[in-house]
């Protein structure tokens, strides 16, 4: 972590978030992601399979990312409440990882286990126009995998899926236990 030294002359309070490591050109990331999509595509047969594959890769990234962030930014305490965790993901986490906060966070009307994070144009979809024969493919399944792993790692087990709705909607469905636990905390 040599990149941390040198730059950090200002106090910890003053440094901006997400500056632990030099950023790379978006083109470098785009061509890497592009290869990952093509590689995965050649090893599966259907769009859902491809999305699963991308989600798995995203989970690998997410689980490591969580460690790195907590390790680096000592200031982050683990969130205990469900809503605070979701807000952390939507704002702080999203901003560090994707350069901006997610557009929206919503709760499903009819189900207390389900939340939505809505992002008009997720980073990974920036350059993608999906050909008609792959109508439903959404490469942000990769991002969904990242979010899922972060939630799991922070002890909020959930399943995160992507949907084409208002751009991209990430549907977060928490395990029953998480909701039950949260209700207990609330009532304390």
């Amino acid at each position: 972590m040599s990149s941390l030294t040198g730059k950090q002359k200002s106090s910890n309070l003053e440094k901006s978030l997400g500056k632990g490591k030099p950023e790379v050109n978006i083109a470098t990331f785009a061509v890497l992601f592009s290869e990952i999509v093509q590689y995965s595509q050649n090893r599966v047969h259907t769009v859902p399979e491809l999305q699963n594959k991308l989600s798995e890769l995203g989970q690998h990234v997410g689980s490591h990312l969580l460690d790195v962030l907590f390790l680096r930014e000592k200031g982050y305490k683990r969130e205990i409440k469900l809503l605070s965790m979701l807000i952390f993901i939507k704002s702080t986490f999203w901003k560090i990882v994707f350069g901006k906060e997610a557009d929206k966070l919503e709760q499903a009307n009819d189900d207390d286990r389900t939340y939505y994070i809505i992002e008009k144009e997720p980073l990974v979809n920036k350059f993608i126009s999906v050909p008609k024969d792959k109508g439903s493919l959404n490469c942000a399944a990769f991002t969904a995998g990242i979010v899922e792993a972060v939630l799991n790692g922070a002890n909020f087990p959930a399943k995160v899926t992507v949907h084409w709705h208002k751009g991209t909607t990430f549907m977060i469905k928490f395990d029953e236990d998480v909701i039950a636990r949260d209700k207990m905390i609330e009532s304390r």
Partner: peptide
């Protein structure tokens, strides 16, 4: 025009 370096490094690691 930039992305988080950790995202890049870890994405490569996942690959």
């Amino acid at each position: 025009r930039k992305v988080n370096g950790e995202l890049f490094t870890l994405t490569y690691g996942a690959l």
